[in-house]
């Protein structure tokens, strides 16, 4: 697992004209195993379900602690779905795929 969150920052999926864009932010604190697991889980899921319609922004709070306030981050890792609205927060390493899909409203909650 050599993914560097920093390198991946602002790497965006291409948004195709007319298709709604998913704007996702993943908050991490340093490169812990949980953070990296969360990123790879997210990436995999997006590729499966939202190919070409998403963008992921990874924010390392150790580098930008001031950003934690804006999205009301308290748990690490936290995934914030900025778009489509409403804003959703998913905390944890995103290992439970089903819960993530529920959290992102990609499948109904029951």
């Amino acid at each position: 697992m050599a993914i560097k969150t920093k390198r991946l920052k602002r790497k965006r999926g291409e948004s195709e004209g007319g298709v709604k864009t998913w704007e996702l932010r993943l908050y991490v604190a340093g490169q812990t195993s949980k953070s990296m697991a969360a990123f790879s889980n997210l990436k995999k899921l997006c590729e499966e379900r939202l190919k070409g319609q998403y963008q992921i922004e990874v924010i390392d709070l150790l580098e930008n602690p001031a950003l934690a306030k804006g999205d009301q981050i308290f748990a690490i890792p936290t995934l914030v779905r900025k778009l489509p609205e409403p804003i959703k927060k998913i905390i944890g390493d995103l290992s439970n795929k089903e819960r993530v899909l529920v959290g992102l409203n990609l499948i109904p909650s029951s």
Partner: peptide, 25 residues
Amino acid sequence: VQIDRSEIEETGEYNLEGLFIRLEH
């Protein structure tokens, strides 16, 4: 610190490092 349970979905392991970071900042 706003914590709204209805907004939050829990998936997998996490900690409250975010709080520590905010406090430290």
